[in-house]
Amino acid sequence: MVSSINQVTFDSRDGYALSLFWAKVTGYVEDPDDPNAPEHTECFIGPDGGHPGLLFINIPEGKTVKNRLHLDISPDTTRDEEVERLLGLGATIFEDHRKPDGTGWVTMHDPEGNEFCVERSKAERGQA
């Protein structure tokens, strides 16, 4: 027997706002049968509104330490183009691990400070 991942859950101060940010990052959408609203304490987005997806739950505490788990994303465009797009959406660069030969990644923070990494695209890794 095995278990499958149903969703990855983020504790957040404003789950609705964070779900909007991550929807723009991933292209995920809310469940059409249970749409998100600003007053909801839980907001879900997923591929075509389904699972596995991302769940954002409102909690009263703010983030205080580094996440023990984070997402690594691989863009459809280049890594550098995606970093610029994400900066425009409200992410910030935390650590830049890009190397002159084009390898490496960028560790970013989402608007609530959760870490995530932007890796090279499949095409950049020669896996197209």
Rank of each mutant, 00 (worst) to 15 (best):
M1L: 14
S3P: 08
I5W: 00
I5S: 00
N6D: 13
Q7R: 11
T9F: 00
F10H: 13
F10R: 11
F10N: 12
D11V: 06
S12K: 08
D14A: 10
Y16H: 01
A17V: 07
A17N: 11
L18K: 09
L20R: 05
L20P: 00
W22Q: 01
A23I: 09
A23G: 15
K24I: 01
V25S: 11
T26K: 05
G27D: 09
Y28T: 11
V29H: 09
E30T: 11
D31K: 01
P32D: 03
D34W: 02
D34H: 06
N36E: 04
P38H: 01
P38C: 03
E42H: 07
E42P: 00
F44T: 02
I45H: 02
I45A: 02
P47T: 03
P47D: 05
P47K: 06
P47H: 03
D48K: 12
G50K: 04
G50T: 05
G50W: 01
L54F: 14
L54Q: 09
F56M: 12
F56S: 10
I57M: 03
I57Q: 02
I57V: 03
N58Y: 11
N58R: 13
I59K: 13
I59R: 14
I59C: 13
I59D: 07
P60F: 05
P60Y: 05
K63T: 04
T64V: 05
V65W: 08
V65D: 14
V65K: 13
K66V: 15
R68W: 01
L69Q: 04
I73C: 08
T77P: 06
D80M: 07
D80K: 10
E81T: 09
E82T: 12
V83P: 01
E84N: 14
R85V: 06
L86K: 04
L86F: 02
L87F: 10
G88M: 06
L89R: 13
A91W: 12
T92V: 02
I93D: 03
F94Y: 11
E95M: 08
D96E: 08
H97M: 15
R98P: 00
P100Y: 02
D101K: 03
D101Q: 03
D101G: 03
T103Y: 02
G104M: 04
G104F: 06
W105C: 11
V106Y: 13
T107W: 00
M108C: 01
M108K: 01
M108W: 01
D110W: 05
P111G: 04
G113M: 10
N114E: 12
C117H: 07
C117V: 06
V118K: 08
S121V: 13
K122I: 13
R125A: 14
G126W: 08
Q127I: 08
A128Y: 01
